[in-house]
């Protein structure tokens, strides 16, 4: 009995020392998970998650400070991907932070209303607005993420969010059986023939 106690406790002591050493020696610095989370976020930098940008939100998720369902631009699919990555339960998108738009949007400045105040330029997180004081501003459509951050500062309310025009080039085939509302109604065209179901 004494022998049993002595052996076990001696082993425990030794392993304790090894663990104590290992804990100091092999301490992991940094957090690569943040990068992985960040890469799943849509990078709209919209701040709807209440964090200033996507990366801060990624850090917050990694630290367990924020739930994964606060990113409306990413939508439910991003929540699923995050849940997958972090191996946590899939949550439903938190509606408090906004709704997900299926159609990608870009900002559009109504030219006749813009007074050239530059306030939207300061608000844009990705430098997608061009212009100078007292001159009309314009959006660089290719760079705009549709984050809506330029809407509130505009004093004359001249910015709209409009859906990106779908072109033939970025038209997508649908899976068999899925129906898509085509943007142009073909039946309106003269001489159209109908087919399909």
């Amino acid at each position: 009995m004494l022998i049993a106690i002595l052996t076990i406790s001696a082993m425990a002591g030794i392993f304790g020392l090894i663990l104590g050493y290992a804990a100091i020696r092999f301490k992991v610095e940094g957090n690569p998970i943040v990068d992985q989370i960040d890469s799943l976020l849509p990078q709209t930098q919209c701040g709807q998650c209440t964090y200033p940008g996507c990366r801060p939100y990624a850090e917050a998720i990694a630290n367990g400070e924020a739930p994964i369902n606060q990113c409306p631009p990413g939508g439910q699919s991003t929540v699923v991907l995050l849940a997958d990555l972090l191996d946590v339960e899939v949550l439903e998108l938190n509606a408090e932070h906004g709704d997900h738009n299926d159609v990608p949007l870009v900002a559009f400045i109504r030219e006749d209303t813009c007074i050239g105040c530059t306030l939207c330029i300061q608000a844009c997180p990705v430098d997608a607005i061009l212009g100078s004081a007292k001159h009309m501003h314009t959006i660089i459509i290719d760079e705009c993420t549709g984050c809506e951050l330029c809407l509130p500062p505009c004093p004359v309310d001249c910015i709209d969010l409009i859906p990106i025009k779908q072109t033939i080039e970025d038209w997508k085939w649908s899976l068999p059986g899925e129906t898509l509302a085509s943007l142009e109604s073909s039946s309106e065209q003269e001489g159209a023939i109908t087919y399909g179901h």
């Binding site: 085939w173 129906t179 898509l180």
Partner: peptide
């Protein structure tokens, strides 16, 4: 109108 697109 929605139309189903049938592929070749």
């Amino acid at each position: 109108m929605t139309s189903v697109i049938v592929s070749s």
